[in-house]
């Protein structure tokens, strides 16, 4: 089984043994007036590098923003709408970050949101690709393909 499928299988197994996604398992996060911060994903969240045992399910609560941060420049990461589901692409910024990761000068920051039809139990994913993968990312993002799979939960 390919690593990505292994991860997805692990995700499915994990979810299949999880009882109802109710308040007992996912108590509401009281925001206490604070702004909702995003779920942030970096290259280390790439699904294809996660082993079965180390791949906890990525659950995302309705109403929270998403953000993907990938090292780049000169590598340019692009959102793949055909290989992304139940997310909306909101835009990209580039943050100067030289000398942190070899072969990259910046962090590309992508803002995403769950799509309007996302609901409790919805399974989705987002995919980014690059054709200029630096050697320093060859193992963590093999072939320049970055994928995060998730399931939506609604504690309310």
């Amino acid at each position: 089984m390919k690593p990505g499928l292994r991860y997805f299988a692990a995700l499915g197994l994990c979810l299949s043994v999880t009882p109802a996604l109710g308040e007992t398992d996912f108590p509401v996060w009281d925001q206490h007036g604070a702004a909702k911060r995003p779920y942030i994903f970096t290259q280390q969240h790439n699904a294809v590098i996660q082993s079965d045992t180390e791949a906890p399910a990525q659950l995302i609560r309705l109403g929270y923003p998403l953000q993907v941060q990938l090292p780049g420049n000169p590598a340019l990461w692009t959102f793949q709408p055909e290989e992304s589901h139940h997310v909306e692409y909101l835009g990209r910024t580039m943050v100067y970050s030289p000398n942190r990761i070899a072969g990259t000068e910046s962090i590309l920051v992508f803002d995403l949101a769950l799509s309007a039809d996302a609901a409790d139990g919805t399974e989705g994913q987002f995919t980014f690709k690059t054709e200029e993968l630096p050697a320093s990312l060859e193992n963590v993002v093999p072939d320049g393909i970055y994928v995060v799979r998730f399931q939506v939960i609604d504690p309310d």
């Binding site: 604070a34 909702k36 911060r37 995003p38 779920y39 942030i40 994903f41 970096t42 280390q44 969240h45 906890p56 399910a57 990525q58 659950l59 929270y64 953000q67 941060q69 943050v95 970050s97 962090i107 920051v109």
Partner: peptide, 19 residues
């Protein structure tokens, strides 16, 4: 946890919103 850009400097694996 891994480092990220932005005011809250780290994000967990799997991700959780942090402040």
């Amino acid at each position: 946890i891994v480092p990220n850009a932005g005011f809250s400097p780290f994000t967990p694996i799997p991700s959780q919103p942090t402040d």
